[in-house]
């Protein structure tokens, strides 16, 4: 388990990253190294150049601007998870990050790295989809902004061009009266999810659902946004029947894989079970519960 040989470049600026990517189409970016380093050591990834961006300081921040939070791509999971701004404005993100590996992993793993890696069972991509987040990326032709809904194309595949790098995650601030919940089924604490459901429910003062956001990890080759389930909730009182109908709609929207940890049918069924629990808890929290 020793990596094949590669060139190593320690980048000091985003421009240098983009230039180096353009020069070598088989280059790979190293940020926190939590996914790339095992792949290198197993020789499943064989880049010719490793661009180490971990020393670029100005890409690590969490700040509020214009109705959303801006999170630098090199911000560590643990920093976001414990950020006061995130807890206040996008609690779903903080809830979700608690399920990413273990604390030691979250101390090193970066937001940009997890999104760029695009593991469909990972928590962060699905959370970004649920929250209508945006990704700011930089390439040789400058900056562009990609909606999370358009970003994740399939298993470990994204809308990122080979010479582009993610610089920032933008997450809209959730409306007042929103409750969030994450329900994850994993074989062990800290494992990738068999299935995980990320839900945010916004209630009117009369208790009807104004807005619902539901996304699922482990549900297919990319994170799944359960729009049909959201529509079932929107405009309705969140009764047990409505929750069950919405949860079933979530399951219908999934196309999970089968593997040694669980068959597809099991995962799909669990998507309904977890959705029921998540919607119920998010609704309770929107009502001021815990």
């Amino acid at each position: 388990m020793k990596a094949a040989t590669f060139e190593y470049v320690r980048a000091t600026s985003v421009d240098e990253v983009v230039r180096t990517l353009a020069d070598d189409e088989d280059a790979k970016i190293l940020a926190g190294g939590q996914s790339l380093v095992p792949l290198l050591n197993m020789r499943l990834a064989r880049p010719t150049t490793i661009i180490d961006i971990s020393r670029i300081d100005d890409l690590s921040y969490v700040r509020r601007a214009n109705g959303h939070l801006e999170i630098g791509a090199l911000t560590k999971h643990r920093v976001v998870e414990t950020s006061e701004l995130v807890h206040r404005h996008v609690p779903l993100l903080a809830d979700a990050l608690r399920y990413v590996g273990h604390v030691t992993i979250r101390n090193r793993g970066t937001i940009g790295g997890s999104i760029a890696h695009a593991d469909p069972a990972a928590e962060l991509p699905a959370t970004c989809v649920a929250l209508d987040a945006q990704l700011v990326v930089q390439g040789p032709r400058g900056q562009r902004v990609i909606a999370a809904a358009d970003f994740f194309h399939g298993y470990l595949m994204t809308a990122l061009d080979p010479e582009e790098v993610i610089t920032e995650l933008r997450v809209p601030v959730l409306a007042k009266g929103t409750g969030c919940a994450v329900e994850e089924l994993a074989r062990r604490s800290g494992d990738f999810a068999l299935v995980a459901v990320f839900a945010a429910v916004t209630l009117e003062l009369d208790g009807t659902c104004r807005e619902a956001r539901i996304a699922v990890a482990g549900a297919g080759p990319a994170p799944v946004r359960a729009t049909a389930a959201e529509a079932i909730l929107r405009g309705n009182a969140v009764t047990t029947d409505v929750i069950t109908a919405a949860a079933n709609a979530v399951a219908d929207a999934t196309d999970p894989p089968s593997d040694i940890h669980g068959p597809a049918e099991y995962r799909r069924e669990m998507a309904a079970v977890l959705s029921r629990r998540a919607i119920k808890q998010a609704t309770n929290r929107a009502n001021g519960g815990v």
Binding site: P38, M42, R187, R188, S189, G190, D191, F192, I260, H261
Partner: peptide, 28 residues
Amino acid sequence: LYEELVYGDDGQIQTTTFMDYLIPTATE
């Protein structure tokens, strides 16, 4: 509850990392 070295019908082993061969951790 957790550990199983899995072989496919083709005789290939499918559990060659600790992501797939699950030993219980302190939390379990």
